[in-house]
Nucleic acid binder design. Structure first.
Length: 887
RNA sequence: GGGCUCAUAGCUCAGUUGGUUAGAGCGUUGCGUUGACAUCGCAAAGGUCAGUGGUUCAAGUCCACUUGGGCCCACCA
């Protein structure tokens, strides 16, 4: 066995063990009918992704679950993969093209897509390597990509099925349009944020009397060029007389009608609203209802089109200025008020969304939502923390149809073909004629037999492929053995930001295509923020790079620190110093293990603990640590099973550090060569390492391998079995008393400013004779850790001037002094304690004197309070004796 | 407009179904390095649990309101 360094060096161990795990296929899972399955599908990171703290947290949690379940005997599968991330990836590749002075149109569709694939091959696995650095135990042999051939088959299949069920339709509606990406977006992809804008009051003259105006208020004056009506509320007395009259729309020189509709809010703006049916969703509805004209005044890249007359070619915001300028000179701009408005922004490039009328494909979602609502209501899918249930249900119950077509190139092309011969016959309105939706490209048109078929140019929303992730990764629509065994999956771990994008839709897909839930538990973790509460992001420059932390502190430290501060679902405010806790803990584990390894005899690994226990060969100290260990194990499992990761991490931390190291290892030093100590010390370390392994996989593996009895990996050692008979609260209490006494002596020493390394004498005065027998065998422990030279036991406390005494339960702890210490100070301190105790006693007495309390509180609580009061009364007598001795 | 969430030690946060003297990590202060660990040990200081009112024998915990952060949803032109 090689010498261990004084400090843990994560770099040396991490890559080494990861290789071993991979080489031995410890991460692979196979359908195993004799074992229960446990499945997690990874939220597939974008191929453009690089590991950030959110990923680190998300994947640490998943790895903890997978490693725990694997050790526990489940066939645990963690399905990995990446998402093609349509718009995001296309944007990235377009940027690299721009450096060559090229646009994607210069290459053409096919060549461009080739470039994207090239980019993907080159950079698309970056995040996979980074996940490995984190220690993730994904079954990499199953790595999937949402644009894999098989996966695309599933996407096409789903489109065709939904189309055939009439749950997919095509139509012209107002959608969210990103003028920069030049594509439609779903409602979820338009993230609304407030911005400071203006409310512009425009005057439209009446045709019959141009001196008379109706003033409308708008935030987007440039759209007035597409106005086809002005609407007022029918109840609005101010405008009643104008309803049905005609206005001369300035600049556009068009006649528009004044219509009335209840939807108009009389109290907003002027109570008269301009109606632009082609550029606003509300106006669109009004346009439909009142049979208005739809005039599109913009081009897809956000410029004014030739319907906009002289403004044609101007960018929409430049056009706004120009329009305002011209209205002003016409005297048609009444005023401008500051106004905060909320505008949609493209979730990929943050450009302000333009509501835009265009022909798109939609999923009819209401029927899909129905079983997805029911499943959650009935608890077949559970959210952790539970409050997300409401968020999910609220969205699901108010679900809108899903716009799934995107006008970009990178993605799954719609399996929609048009017959050129039939196209002429197609009306603008919905008609299936000449539209062929098919799994494979058809040879000829089923309507006219024409062979001139072209495929729809659009691709599908990225989420239209990711919503199939829990089963498409198992090669659905094939009924594979893996699909049957591993699906439905067990737990989904993700952040709150993609509940609508992804989680909700997966539930819908699960029911629609598999007739069951896609997962049983959804664990929603918090968002990682910087110390000021801002979301961590590269663009804000406040991000802490997990890889940097791994390089500096190690992956185990990163994981442990992250987990220990993330209480269930709560956001995390993170600073770099936070990771020192994990690093220090790793180092503590390392050094405690180093100490044990230096003293351990290999045969200790072979003994059977139960035999030893039954033979009565375990002393109280060893029984104590075993009891504490199994109590901890019990707690760890309870917390893990309800996704309380921080509590688990913290109980392991405090058990290992503050009980095992601070007390146990210190106390056993004098008896370290005793057989029972050897065995227990080995046992507790070995099993604690196993409990820690899901949290800190590398260091626990490294140390386990150095202990006797190692298998190829600690993963194979499995999860320790709870041995409830080892939990002994009586033993725990007795040892706790010893610790309390030691603490008191240490405290007294510190109060007296005695050098911690000097030995002192102590007398314990304990009136209860029977207690003497219990404490006698424990005296050596006290002597050891409290640095006591002579420890005597007596039955009676005799107050004396040259001593310092303290009280613990019914015991006086007496420290003889050689006269150097100031008795005045001791007296003050003792009196202070008495004063505090008196106050406590008074409040207890009041409490117990209250008949309401004694009558209504549970008997055991009242009894406990009585006992407590008695103890306090006893203590005060003893303290008073001490005080009298000092006087 | 609706909903969620947070406010506890100087900082970051725990605190289970209401029930002893409210905890941890970091930081601070004092003492301590001859063999596990200074990425350490021992000890200490530090909290009217945001405010007000209520329910209760009992409130950090439950309820209402107030104040101040953060987030989400919604078609206020």
């Amino acid at each position: 066995m090689t010498e261990l360094s004084k400090q843990y060096n994560p770099k040396e161990t991490e890559s080494k063990w990861y290789e071993v795990w991979e080489k031995n296929n410890f991460f692979s899972a196979k359908a195993a009918p004799d074992k229960p399955p446990y499945t997690i599908v990874i939220p597939p990171p974008n191929v453009t992704g690089i590991l950030h703290m959110g990923h680190a947290l998300n994947n640490s949690i998943q790895d903890i679950l997978i490693r725990y379940k694997k050790m526990k005997g489940f066939e645990a599968l963690w399905m990995p993969g990446t998402d093609h991330a349509g718009i995001a990836t296309q944007n990235v590749v377009e940027k690299t093209l721009a450096k060559e002075g090229l646009k994607r149109q210069d290459l053409g569709r096919e060549k461009f897509i080739e470039r994207v694939w090239e980019w993907k091959e080159k950079y698309g696995s970056t995040i996979i390597y980074q996940l490995k650095k984190l220690g993730c135990s994904c079954d990499w042999s199953r790595l999937r990509f949402t644009m894999d051939n098989d996966y695309s088959t599933a996407v096409t299949e789903v489109f065709v099925r939904l189309y055939e069920k009439k749950l997919i339709y095509q139509g012209s509606y107002i959608i969210n349009w990103c003028p920069r990406c030049q594509t439609a977006l779903s409602d979820e992809e338009a993230s609304h944020s407030e911005l400071q804008g203006h409310l512009y009051y425009l005057k439209y003259p009446l045709e019959e009397n141009p001196q008379e105006f109706i003033t409308v208020a708008t935030t987007r004056p440039e759209t007035m060029l597409g106005d086809t009506a002005v609407a007022v509320n029918p109840k609005d007395k101010r405008y009643k007389k104008y309803i049905g009259k005609v206005l001369a729309l300035p600049l556009a020189s068009r006649r528009i009608k004044i219509i009335s509709d209840n939807i108009v809010d009389m109290h907003f703006g002027t109570g008269a609203v301009k109606v632009t049916p082609a550029h606003d969703p509300n106006d669109y509805a009004l346009g439909k209802k009142h049979g208005l004209e739809f005039i599109t005044v913009m081009t897809p890249d956000g410029k004014m089109n030739n319907m906009a007359g002289k403004y044609s070619g101007l960018d929409r915001f430049k056009a706004r200025e120009a329009v305002l300028e011209d209205l002003k000179s016409l005297g048609c701009l009444e005023k401008i008020d500051p106004h905060t408005l909320s505008a949609g922004h493209c979730y990929r490039c943050h450009t302000i969304i333009e509501p835009y009328l265009s022909k798109q494909w939609f999923v009819k979602t209401k029927p899909l939502a129905k079983p997805a609502i029911e499943a959650v209501k009935k608890g077949r899918i559970k959210f952790y923390p539970g409050r997300w249930t409401k968020v999910y249900l609220n969205w699901m119950e108010n679900i809108q149809d899903w716009c799934i077509s995107r006008q970009i190139w990178w993605g799954h092309r719609l399996p929609v073909y048009y017959c050129k011969d039939c196209q002429g016959a197609r009306s603008q309105e919905l008609s299936a004629k000449g539209i062929i939706v098919s799994r494979a490209k058809p040879d000829k048109c089923p309507d006219c037999g024409g062979t001139d078929l072209i495929q729809d140019e659009d691709v599908l929303d990225t989420w239209f492929s990711s919503w199939l992730w829990p089963f498409a990764t198992f090669y659905w629509p094939k009924e594979t053995a893996d699909l049957k065994y591993f699906y439905p999956t067990s737990t989904l771990v993700t952040g709150p930001d993609i509940i609508f994008f992804w989680v909700a839709r997966m539930v819908m897909a699960g029911f629609e295509f598999r007739k069951q839930v896609p997962f049983k538990d959804v664990y929603i973790h918090g968002t990682i923020r910087d110390i000021e509460g801002k979301k961590m992001s590269k663009s804000l420059g406040n991000a802490i790079d997990p890889l940097e932390i791994i390089a500096e502190y190690g992956a185990d430290a990163l994981r442990f620190s992250l987990i220990s501060i993330t209480s269930q679902g709560q956001d995390v405010f993170l600073s770099k110093e936070r990771f020192e806790q994990g690093r220090n803990f790793a180092n503590k584990i390392w050094n405690a293990s180093r100490f044990i390894l230096m003293n351990l005899k290999p045969e200790a690994a072979n003994a059977d603990l139960r035999v030893l226990l039954n033979a009565g060969k375990l002393d109280i100290l060893n029984r104590w640590i075993l009891s504490r260990f199994y109590s901890t194990l019990e707690e760890v499992e309870k917390n893990l099973n309800c996704y309380k990761f921080n509590e688990t991490a913290n109980s392991l931390y405090s058990f290992f550090w503050h009980e095992f190291c601070d007390w146990y290892l210190e106390l056993i030093k004098p008896q370290i060569n005793r057989e029972e100590t050897q065995i227990v010390m080995y046992k507790v370390l070995e099993e604690t390492l196993r409990l820690l392994h899901p949290f800190m996989p590398f260091i626990t593996e490294e140390i386990r391998q150095r202990l006797p009895g190692a298998k190829v990996s600690i993963i194979q050692q499995g999860w320790p079995h709870l041995q409830a008979q080892m939990i002994d609260l009586k033993v725990e209490n007795q040892i706790q008393s010893v610790f309390d006494i030691i603490n008191m002596v240490r405290n007294m020493r510190a109060e007296l400013e005695l050098n911690p390394s000097s030995f002192i004498d102590i007398e314990l005065a304990l009136p209860d004779k029977q207690a003497h027998n219990i404490i006698k065998p424990l005296l050596d422990y006290i002597k050891n850790l409290a640095k006591v030279k002579n420890l005597s036991l007596s039955e009676k406390y005799i107050p004396q001037a040259n001593q310092y005494a303290a009280v613990f339960k019914d015991m006086h702890i007496i420290m003889p002094l050689s006269g150097l210490v100031d008795t005045e100070t001791q007296l003050k301190k003792t009196e202070g304690k008495i004063g505090k105790l008196q106050a406590d006693i008074r409040s207890k007495e009041t409490m117990l004197g209250n008949k309401n309390f004694t009558a209504r509180a549970p008997a055991e609580i009242v009894e406990a309070e009585r006992v407590k009061l008695k103890e306090m009364q006893m203590q005060i007598v003893k303290l008073e004796a001490v005080r009298n001795g000092l006087r």
